[in-house]
């Protein structure tokens, strides 16, 4: 069998991968505090990390991701930070949030050009009260977004790589070291952790959410339900609007009949004229 070609594409297939793009920020101790790290300018109040990672137990990012470049604010020294190997993250200190350009470089076998993503570096508390309270409690402001990277018609080589079972082997490698492996590969409930042998091994979202699992199928279902509820709302509004429209239509019809064709035309002109004038 010849090696999978890098220039031939697998037709009509799409391989999707979930990644998490996010940032975390902690407050630095005030100036003069013994814990304050040295060499940090006095006006910096936060330490932050911006990262690109896979959800826990997902197939390895590096199967398709070659390197990541973070374009941080240009007053930083060397504002274009490049990460060739995981973890793809940049840690810095600062005092203000800004938008970070994240450039994803794909593996050469994919034959794809690099793509930009943007992430706003959230340093201050945000969100609803509950979220803010938690951020207050932990002292860490995390702002994460799930992104779905879709490889449409991937090259054969990439397809092969993305459907191989060794995409999870990075977990086993990382957990080398005797006793630790068992504790690492099983979760608190004694079941094998996601991604480890005998555990759930899938590139889909994790089935169940948890404290340390920010994105899961449960949440997805919840979100879908929310959207469906909104849809029902819209439906209701639509029905009401339709009813109103019918009423006005009937009224209009009767008025037109009453006043005659000419008046109706005039009115139509006027009404549309009004609209055009307003615009």
């Amino acid at each position: 069998m010849p090696a999978p070609a890098a220039n031939k594409r697998v037709k009509n297939k799409r391989v999707s991968r979930n990644i998490i793009i996010g940032s975390e920020a902690w407050a630095l101790p005030p100036v003069g505090h013994p814990d304050r790290p040295k060499g940090v300018p006095d006006d910096h109040t936060k330490r932050w990390t911006v990262y690109v990672r896979q959800p826990d137990g997902d197939p390895s990012l590096t199967t398709w991701l070659n390197k990541v470049q973070f374009k941080i604010f240009n007053t930083y020294e060397n504002p274009l930070r490049t990460c060739d190997n995981p973890p793809f993250q940049v840690t810095e200190t600062g005092w203000g949030g800004f938008t970070i350009d994240i450039r994803l470089h794909f593996q050469p076998i994919s034959g794809e050009k690099a793509q930009y993503r943007q992430h706003f570096l959230q340093l201050e508390k945000y969100g609803d009260e509950k979220l803010q309270a938690e951020q207050e409690k932990t002292g860490c402001v995390r702002s994460e977004f799930l992104e779905v990277v879709q490889f449409n018609e991937p090259t054969e080589a990439l397809y092969e790589a993305l459907t191989a079972d060794d995409q999870w082997s990075y977990l086993a490698l990382g957990a080398k070291g005797g006793k630790k492996t068992s504790s690492m590969s099983t979760g608190p409930n004694g079941r094998p952790k996601r991604g480890f042998p005998n555990g759930e091994r899938s590139a889909q979202l994790p089935e169940k959410g948890g404290d340390d699992i920010p994105f899961s199928q449960e949440q997805e279902a919840e979100l879908i339900n929310q959207l469906k509820a909104k849809m029902a709302e819209v439906d209701k509004a639509l029905a009401g609007e339709n009813k109103k429209r019918e009423e006005t239509e009937a009224k209009l019809k009767s008025l037109r009949e009453e006043l005659g064709h000419e008046a109706a035309q005039q009115a139509a002109q006027q009404a549309s004229g009004d609209r055009s004038r307003r615009r």
Binding site: S16, E112, K113, Q115, E147, Q150, N152, E153
Partner: peptide, 9 residues
């Protein structure tokens, strides 16, 4: 499908 990389968002 148009081949290439797209993002869900």
């Amino acid at each position: 499908l148009t081949s290439g990389v797209t993002f869900g968002s």
